[in-house]
Nucleic acid binder design. Sequence first.
DNA 1: TTTGATATGTTGTTTATCCAACACATTAAG
DNA 2: CTTAATGTGTTGGATAAACAACATATCAAA
Lengths: 186, 186
Amino acid sequence: MSQSKTDPRVLRTRKLIMDSFIQLSEKKEFKDITVKDITTEAMINRATFYYHFEDIYDLLEKVLSEVLLINLKGDQFENNEINEEGIITIFKAIANFQASLSNRCHRGYEDTIARIIRDQLEVIFYKMLLKQHNTEGDESLKVTAVMLSWGIYGASVEWRRNSNSITPQEYIKPAIPYLMSGIVLG
Amino acid sequence: MSQSKTDPRVLRTRKLIMDSFIQLSEKKEFKDITVKDITTEAMINRATFYYHFEDIYDLLEKVLSEVLLINLKGDQFENNEINEEGIITIFKAIANFQASLSNRCHRGYEDTIARIIRDQLEVIFYKMLLKQHNTEGDESLKVTAVMLSWGIYGASVEWRRNSNSITPQEYIKPAIPYLMSGIVLG
DNA sequence: TTTGATATGTTGTTTATCCAACACATTAAG
DNA sequence: CTTAATGTGTTGGATAAACAACATATCAAA
């Protein structure tokens, strides 16, 4: 696998853009952030932005997936097995992520963000299910992944609504046996 | 004055290098910091470093002057008049700067740093004296600037040795009348 | 409606940065 | 004394990023 590595300038520029976007998100709402704002903060040319991203929504999507992936890296996401510990880890990541980002700075864009998060979760769960059952092309695995992604995401929304009286772990733990026996392994 | 503005990439790269250097200085001593360390942290190529700086000492010098100038900008450095308030401001800048930077991370390089700071101070004082007396080419102004720079710098060293029982202002204030009447205006 | 101001995308040319390779110095280990 | 490893500093050819210019869209004020 000779994957000719990407130019360091590309990695640096993408990081500058993403970091600037995250930083701006802490001051303004998403709808008030322009491409010019981002490129000014990142000290790069506006044309360069379009060299890397289709538009500002493309950037949002990529930032969200990146943050999620980083939150899940180094934990059992690499283990590729669905188990109680893994689900709790993922749930914690989503819950904390929501609490830190989408909560405060993207009023009016929760739907978009929710869709992106669910899409990411779906991919992750589908990969894990494949590793566990290795029946490639099985449509039921995809459906299962869809349900898991909606379920976990929805739980994080409800957790946010109820807290801060309970931790993510405590909130999700009771439901896991049902998930494990009924859906995933049934 | 058509000063063809410098390429944004240049400004960005210099900032990345300087910021990385400052950040590394908070973890390592100066003598343990290599060019490779800096360029890795800054996400730029090592060759690019040499495009902007002669060597690591050149970088140190420029970082120090930049930090000093920034500390003094927006205050009465622009007023171009030597007075009690201005001297206190400068002294505070030096004292705080020492406390924050050269104190902890450059053991063994105090002499170099001291020289750089004094050089910067000398330039600043000379400019201020010129504005005040406008007798260009007068050698005595240069000597005065030299003495002021050594005096202020030395006072900051002594202040550091005695504190934290007293603020920079309180420390320097009693001496100012003598400076004003004896050296600057005498 | 018209006007001015501001944001979004796109394109050819110029330029700063990357890379690989090189010579040289320093330092530690065998 | 080698030898290996690591850091410094330089060079010519390849490429991402900057720039300027343009067309288009949006939106508030006249």
